[in-house]
Amino acid sequence: MAIIYCGKTKNNSYYIKEADLHIKSMQELAYFIFNYAILISNSFITKNLIVYMDKTLGFTKLASDINEMYNKKENLASILTHILLNSNYYNEDEVYKFRLELLELLSLPANEYIHKAGDKLFNLKKYEKAITQYSKIMKEDDIALRNLAFCYAKLQFYDIAADYLGKLYHRTGNIEDLREAYYSLKLGGNVNKIYEYESNISDELLADWEYEIVSRIIKVRRSDELRNIEEIFLMGQDRVKENISTRIKIWKEKYRYIG
């Protein structure tokens, strides 16, 4: 075994629209194919990707092979497998495993396939893309509906998240879903809306939830993350500005497709 040589950092990245991701090396491309094949459709292989592999990543031979396979309209699984085998990343055993998993994925029922795609996007923190997937199956899939609510909560649309959790509560009758809805409303600043989801909710239950929220706030105040933020403020204006600018950049990325 030896380390894997990846060359110099590339200035140009390639945008994978299926996952709202930018990749900068052949290894990242291979990693995406291996772990997120469920997000890949036939439109994944494009002339732009082939040119990027050739000119930017310097995998000229592989790019030429893929171009030939693409022109011959070979199936996607074969093309992806060829990329993995020649990506200077995965070995033959790993690629064999990938092929088996890919076959398994392709045999999944449509709803399950969409659900898994949503989960992959959720794990990648691509919530807006995950929303698109979960929305397709939320009518018949409780977990998808819950995840859809969580996606909105992650994007800080707390009222929408609460509405979906309220819907879920009506469907399942599970008090945990109502509790999550209450937390969302609390974060959104509109707790009275909880009575729209459950008019008979007891004051004791609400008190318990309030107690839990306060406990969590105390825990957060003692967290390392908060301490780091406070330390940044102590380091002066420049560090604060730098961190705010980073945070805004992350938010912009997250909200690019919303609205």
Binding site: M1, A2, I3, I4, Y5, C6, G7, K8, T9, S25, Q27, N86, S87, N88, Y89
Partner: peptide
């Protein structure tokens, strides 16, 4: 390093280079 499919010595600085010019020469490995 591994440069698929082989493991071999990958040339970072070509023979004849001057040591002084090797300043922040960076590459990535996994």
């Amino acid at each position: 390093a591994r440069v698929s499919p082989n493991e071999e010595y990958v040339e970072l600085v070509e023979p004849g280079s001057e040591w002084l010019n090797i300043n922040n020469y960076a590459f990535n490995v996994i």
